[in-house]
Design a protein around this nucleic acid. Sequence first.
DNA 1: GCATATAGTCTGTACGACAGATTACTTTCC
DNA 2: GGAAAGTAATCTGTCGTACAGACTATATGC
Lengths: 153, 153
Amino acid sequence: MLGWSLAVLLREWNARVEGASHDLPHGVRGYQVLSAVVHDAPPTQAALAARLGIDRTVMTYLLDKFEGCGLLERRQDPADRRARRIVPTDHGRRVLADVDARVARAEDELLSALPPGDRRVLLALLEHAAAGAAPGVDRCAAAAGSAGLTQEA
Amino acid sequence: MLGWSLAVLLREWNARVEGASHDLPHGVRGYQVLSAVVHDAPPTQAALAARLGIDRTVMTYLLDKFEGCGLLERRQDPADRRARRIVPTDHGRRVLADVDARVARAEDELLSALPPGDRRVLLALLEHAAAGAAPGVDRCAAAAGSAGLTQEA
DNA sequence: GCATATAGTCTGTACGACAGATTACTTTCC
DNA sequence: GGAAAGTAATCTGTCGTACAGACTATATGC
C-alpha cells in the first residue's frame, strides 16, 4: 500500500506540475532542477544531481539547456577549479517564482481530499521521512554557504 | 518540497523493495502487479494496468512472463469474451506471501526516522490522499467481487 | 447487419538511463 | 617537486522500455 500510494501521488503530482511548468526546459524535471538550485543551493553539480537522484551524465545536458535559456549559469568554483557552482540568473529566479506559485496551487489541488490541517501534517511527516531515508542527500544544502532556505515548497 | 519528498521516498522504496522482490519477474514492477492482483483483484487486465499506471501494451508482456512462471493465469471472462480475468495461482499466492513479509520489513526500515505512531498517521494520510487524487482508480477494487482486502501493505 | 466502441495484442520508433572512456584539475605521499 | 591516485564534469555508444499506431476479436446500438 505504501508503494502504491507513493506511486499514485507522485504520478499525479507529475501530471499536474507538468502543466504548471510547460515553459521550462525538460518540464517537471526542469522544474525540480531549477527549484533545487534556487531553494537549496547545492554546492556543486554533482551534489545537485545526487539530491534529485539524477545521473551526472544526465545533469550535464539538463544544465546545458538551462544555460542556453539564460536561467542558470555554471561558474568555476575558485576553491576547486574542477567543480562548477550552479547559480540562478535573475531571469531564472523570476521564472521560478511564477512556476512555484502555479505548482503550489497544483499541490493544493492534489491534496484536496485532505483538510488543511491534515495536509500540513502529511507534508511535515513526508519531509521528515524523506530526510531520514535519503542518507546525506539533504545535508549537503546545509553544508553549503546559503543554508536556512530548506523550508520551501 | 512535496514533489521532492515523494520522489525521494519512492526512489528509496524502490531500491529496498528491489532487494525483497528479486526472485519475481520484472522486480519491483512485478511485485506491484502480483500484489495488486492478489490484494485488490481488479476485474480486468485493463483495470489492473490503470490501477498501477502502466500502459496496456506493457501489461501484456508483464503478464506473459507471470503466466510463464505459473504465478498468474489469464481466464476468459464468461460475461465478456474480449476481457481476461487475471487470477493468481496457489503458487503465486505463496510466493507473494513471502515477498510481502520482506517488503513489510523494508518499509518499516524505510520509515525508521518516524516513531510508530507517526508512521501509522503517515500511511493513513498517504492512502487517503492517493485515493482522492487518482480518480476512480481504486474504486474498481470495491466494484470487483472480493473487496475488503484493501488494508494491505 | 452495418457502424462504432472496447479488450487485448503486436510492431516500430525514439527517447532517456547508464556504462565506460576522456579531459581537467586536485590531493597525497615519497 | 613530481609521479600516482582520486575526483568533477563531459562525451560517446548501447540498450531497455515506454508509447504511438495498426490489428484482431468481441460487444453494443441503431
